[in-house]
Design a protein around this nucleic acid. Structure first.
Lengths: 123, 123
DNA sequence: GTATCTGCAAATCATTTGCATTCTG
DNA sequence: CAGAATGCAAATGATTTGCAGATAC
């Protein structure tokens, strides 16, 4: 049975209240304002929990950093190689590159990774 | 000045000779057949070198694992959540999902990340 | 009261780095 | 010989885990 905890609520609220696609340690910093003693492990535990429940998306940047997003609706992301920031883009695939450029990004690269289960593994 | 080394050639050849998108340690295993004493650090050094020269692509899968690909032409990838394998897809974006399914993938998700420099950082 | 959560510290894992040594040109 | 590249081991950084104690129901 799942129980309540102030720390869990704080982590969830922190992620839900923000559009910035924070990393785990960015969430840690947000939550520490209210809970100076919270542990980074607790933040990780609760973020993974949200992910497991399907209430958060985990995105791995081209540079390898992992960000969290409470917006689970299908959309894509723009990553800045310089500041490391992540921004949303909503249009459908064919229009995506244009949408990125409309957002002022100088698009130098992209990485598209479909995932699922391959033919072999489905057997 | 850059010099020759048997180990470097072995790493480069290993990556160029496969289409399997190996991880660094998979390359390590390949090269160890010929150089039992090669160090994993050397493999990392040489793969990064290829990446820096633009002779290899680094891809981070949805699960966070990092794979290398000597095919630097623009194309996308399919990742299998079960076996962790990575496969190529070449069509243009609008046709990608269909191409993935034609390859026998049961597509459950995708992650598209454009990268570049955001408006702010360009100033 | 007991199972769940937390904080802390130690353990992992992938990758990088420092340095003494071994090659290459 | 001088500078590069290697191997090894230790350092790093991000995330996970084990455990004893705090907390919720």
């Amino acid at each position: 049975m799942k129980r309540h905890s102030r720390q869990r609520d704080a982590v969830r609220n922190a992620l839900c209240s923000v559009k910035s696609h924070p990393t785990a340690s960015a969430v840690y910093d947000m939550v520490r304002a209210e809970f100076p003693n919270i542990s980074l492990a607790t933040v990780y535990r609760n973020l993974s929990e949200m992910y497991d429940e399907g209430n958060a998306v985990m995105l791995t940047t081209v540079s390898g950093s992992v960000h969290f997003d409470a917006d689970t609706s299908p959309h894509s992301h723009l990553y800045c190689n310089k500041c490391g920031g992540v921004t949303d883009v909503y249009p459908d695939l064919p229009d995506l590159r244009k949408a990125a450029e409309d957002k002022g990004y100088e698009v130098t690269n992209y990485s598209l990774m479909y995932s699922g289960v391959c033919e072999n593994c489905r057997k």
